[in-house]
Structures are given as C-alpha cells and as structure tokens.
Design a protein around this nucleic acid. Structure first.
Lengths: 203, 203
DNA sequence: TATTAAAATGACCATACTGGTCATTTTAAT
DNA sequence: ATTAAAATGACCAGTATGGTCATTTTAATA
C-alpha cells in the first residue's frame, strides 16, 4: 500500500502520470510546476500532495514507473527464441509504440532522465528492476552469423538502433494531441527500413 | 547599423549569443530568463535591453543568426564538385563540429526552433537567407549511380542522415563544459561509420 | 436515514522570480 | 576639462512557486 496512486481509478491514475510526465518533459525539474500538473490532470493541489509527499517524490515515482513499464513490456512480449536481431528490434519498436498510446510522454521521459541525471543512479534503478536487460535484448539467442562478416558489428548495431529511435521520434513529433495512431501505417514504415537494413548489412 | 551587437568586442558578442542560446535551449521561450542570460554572459540587465528591444527580439535575432551561421558555412566550405554523397555528409558533419566549438548550443538551438515553431515561419527565414539549400546539399552534382540499385534510396538517405545526427548528438552529450574537443577522434569515428555505410549501401 | 471515516478541495502563505525601466556612474575620445 | 556613449543595477508591479490545512464532498456502513 506504499503507492497511494494505485488505489485510484486506473484512468485517473494514468491521467495524473501523463500530466506529470508531460510537465517534466517540457521543463527542467526545478521549473516544472505542480500547479500546472494538477491543472492538466484535473485534480486539486491538495490531492496531489496527498498522493505524493512532495514534488521530488513524485519525480522519483515517475522515474521508477517509466523504467519498469517499458522494461516489463519488453520482457513479457518479446519472443526470446527469435534469432534475427532485426526482427527483435521490430518487436521492441512496436512494443514501445503500444506503450506510447497509453503514455505519450513515457519514452521521452526516459530519455530525459537518461540525459540529465547521474548515470549511476539510473543504472542502479535499472539493475534493481530489470537486471541485464540490455545484454538480453542484444545477445540472448541472437544469431550474429546472419550479418555480413566484412562489416564492424558495433557500428551496425548503433545504426540499427538510431534508425528505429529516429523513426519513433519522427512519429511522435508528427502526432497531434488526440490523433489516432495508425499502427498499420507505422508497421509498414518499420518494415521498409528493416528490408533496407537487411539488404545492406545481412549476408 | 541595425544590429547593435556587432559593434561589440567579438568575444563579448559570442559570449552573449552563447549564453542566450543556452538559456533558450534549456527552457521554453516563456520560461527562459533574461536575468539568467545576463548573469551567464556577465553583462548588466540594462545592456542587454540596450542591445535588444525586448526578449522577443533577442530570440528572433538568434533564430536568424543560427540559420545563417550554419548555412553560410555549408555554402562556403563544401566542395560542391564532390559526387559522393557520403563524402559530402562527412564534410558537413565536420563543418557543424567546427561551428560547435564556437557556438556549443547552435545546433541544438536550430533543432529547438525547428520543433516548437510554426514551420511556415522557419521556411520563410530559410528561403530568404539560404534558398534551396536542402536540394543543393542532397542533389547538386551527386552521383546516385554509386548506390546499390536494389535498395530504396529514400530510406537510405534518411539512415545516413540520422546516423550522423546521432553521432553528433552523442558527442555533444559526452562533452563537458571547457572540455577540449578532439577533432581527430571524431573524424575517425565518422570515418568508421562512413565505411560501414558505404559497404552496406554502395555498389 | 444517520453516522462516520476517507478522499478531495482550493484559498492561502511567505518567498522568489519575471521582463523591463531609467537615473546614475563609468569609460573613452576629444 | 568637456562631452557623448556605454554600462550599470536598484527598483518596479505583477505573477508563479511548493506546500499546508481547515473545510467540504463522497461513499460505505449501521
């Protein structure tokens, strides 16, 4: 019962989380305003400070929540028997997109905390909740013999990652509030890039 | 003589520009503080509002300045006879890096104004100062027969771009204030990726 | 329906910062 | 010594800050 937010109506909970994430994404921690958060979420100031002791503890809650949310989805939904890294990345891209529909600022928020906070602290959170997920994603059962042998794998892995990060980013910027997300459209786009990358970097 | 800033000692001018860009990069326009700008720049409030009529005109000045600065450098320094797109991108990446040394927030600032402002306004500024630069960069004298014919060129161009954007971004995040930038180190990294991309996507 | 406990509210607080002004001081040139 | 230009920073009214808490609303139970 540590987490007062979880007793709430789920829609309300999601609403508060999204409002707070949006505010923390658009402002530095210091300048993110609890007034705007409650306004956006449609709750009273008193309630927010009933759910959370103070601004800092709200921020910390979001940090853990976002890391867990994304990692749990990956751990649960990825087909870990798939040996083709491109297929795995496809899966993860679409998983992130599904999360995006419920929490539009979650991916951005995780990037934010990655860039502005002490790496050590984040690593600790990650290790506590989802140990070794990076290694798991990139190496567990992956068949590297699918790749061309005359190309440095390290650079290729970065290019793959960056490409799908950018695809997601571009979609995020394109979408207006309350837009419907056309998953099929995105899937097709992702497939096009997978095909190109496969032709370029696979045997 | 429209531009009061240009009468100043160049170092002072650069200092003010950098302080202001930093502030506008780290905050939304509304929350960017002129107090912090003058503090960072080491000038008085009165001076800033002597150089610029108000906050808005300072922001507009920076918009035009950043677009011109980066476009002028590209127009002047690129070897427009080079038919290899990867070599052209290499050149531009290094040009941007040179600018980065003098104006560490300039690239970020242009990304900022790209994402948060009305596209129309920006296009107008671009067209006024550097018409058709995009087309020039990607098409002027470029030999597309260097690319493999079995791969969609549109996706390849995006991948190339995104890759070098990300390389720059990562360097930017790695560098602390007052760090020396090791151009040779970066050049080597850029070369590695060029080699990988060439192997993947060229004939 | 009356009682009660839990949940939600928002006016209120001292404090801090906002963009911008302008009378005064400093600097530099003559 | 005189003057003009440049730089200063105390000051302004207005607004926003994180957080509190006495009061009201809601919902469950008797």
């Amino acid at each position: 019962m540590k987490d007062k937010l979880s007793n709430l109506d789920p829609k309300k909970k999601i609403n508060i989380i999204n409002s707070a994430m949006e505010e923390f994404c658009k402002n530095t921690y210091e300048k993110a305003s609890t007034n705007r958060i409650v306004e956006k979420a449609g709750i009273s100031k008193g309630s927010l400070f009933n759910y959370f002791q103070n601004k800092k503890s709200l921020y910390n809650y979001l940090k853990v929540f976002s890391i867990k949310e994304i990692a749990d989805a990956i751990l649960a939904d990825v087909n870990w028997e798939e040996p083709d890294l491109l297929e795995r990345i496809r899966e993860i891209t679409l998983i992130k997109l599904k999360i995006f529909r419920e929490y539009p600022y979650l991916t951005r928020f995780t990037q934010r905390i990655n860039s502005d906070k002490s790496i050590e602290e984040l690593k600790a959170i990650f290790e506590e909740y989802v140990p070794n997920i990076y290694e798991k994603v990139y190496y567990e059962n992956i068949d590297f013999s699918l790749f061309r042998e005359d190309i440095e794998i390290k650079e290729v892995l970065n290019i793959l990652n960056w490409t799908f990060e950018k695809i997601g980013e571009n979609y995020f910027n394109k979408i207006k509030v309350d837009d419907v997300i056309d998953i099929e459209d995105i899937s097709n786009e992702v497939s096009k890039y997978i095909e190109v990358l496969r032709k370029g970097f696979y045997k």
